[in-house]
Design a protein around this nucleic acid. Structure first.
Lengths: 150, 150
DNA sequence: ATAAGAATGAGAATCATTCTTATTTTGGCG
DNA sequence: CGCCAAAATAAGAATGATTCTCATTCTTAT
């Protein structure tokens, strides 16, 4: 993981990874990556667009390019539209809260001890199923504060 | 959870739940539910259709109806097409393995002690985020046996 | 049996995503 | 500098999965 996660390192890492796959880190792509650092959870194409008014075709193309370069990750949460976030190794390993009422998707991190336990259990479960576990993602489904109150 | 999960109980529960929302348990819907009991993981519309050649419009409509009745659950795994499975309380609480190479999605269950630990951790993490956690789902990403060998 | 209300299926409509193509930008080089 | 070649952009067309429409068929209750 890139230290800090919010600063210049993200951009230089993005530039390097794009370079590795023969792509340029243009101002449009930089703006897109910057937009992704602004959110506390994975966001939809529409949300990105409301922040960075790019042409739709460019947005989709660049999300694909950045995904192939390992800069962003596409997340299929809940049953909504696909969402995008910066790759975990540019930010931090985390999981997602999903509010069933308003559709909010928010990042959270487990305490390290717990995280280790989950990773270990996942590896063990994988072994039992003859599956080679590389990573894991947890989703907590429930009600966010606002929806509980309302 | 309905005991056993594979037998007649699933159908009577499905009928009851449809009844609760003013829907009938027709032969087509029964066939659809039956098809879903045949698989060991959530399946795509295409897979279902290869087993039960229904009209596309009926298939989509019935999946929606069954989802609203709480009989099936729509699962957004990976970044592929949406998949459908029987609701956990008709079968068993489980998680998913996702093969990054062939796209296979397979159910697995944690040993009870581990499952309790994850549930507890999830509730605690939710509390810390001011979130009311109702359920959780874990996804293990990696390589299935066949893809590791090939 | 029969009528009223639902469910079905074929095909049309919709809409997010992807593709095409002309234009603009980028970066290297004389 | 100022051009060239390669790559990125953006507008709109094409695609394709999902949803909608509506005429027909099936259910259920009387």
């Amino acid at each position: 993981m890139i230290s800090g996660g919010q600063g210049r390192e993200v951009h230089s890492a993005a530039a390097a990874r794009l370079g590795d796959v023969g792509q340029r880190y243009t101002s449009g792509r930089r703006a897109l990556v910057h937009a992704l650092t602004m959110f506390t959870g994975p966001v939809t194409v529409d949300t990105i667009r409301s922040w960075q008014p790019l042409a739709l075709s460019s947005l989709y193309r660049n999300l694909t390019v950045l995904e192939e370069a390992g800069v962003v990750r596409r997340v299929a949460t809940h049953d909504e539209a696909p969402r995008y976030e910066l790759n975990e190794d540019l930010t931090e390993h985390h999981h997602h809260l999903v509010c069933t009422s308003c559709g909010l998707v928010e990042d959270f991190v487990f305490p390290p001890a717990l995280e280790r336990a989950v990773a270990k259990a996942g590896a063990a479960a994988g072994r039992a199923m003859d599956f080679d576990t590389a990573e894991h993602h947890l989703e907590l489904i429930g009600l966010c504060r606002g929806c509980r109150a309302g």
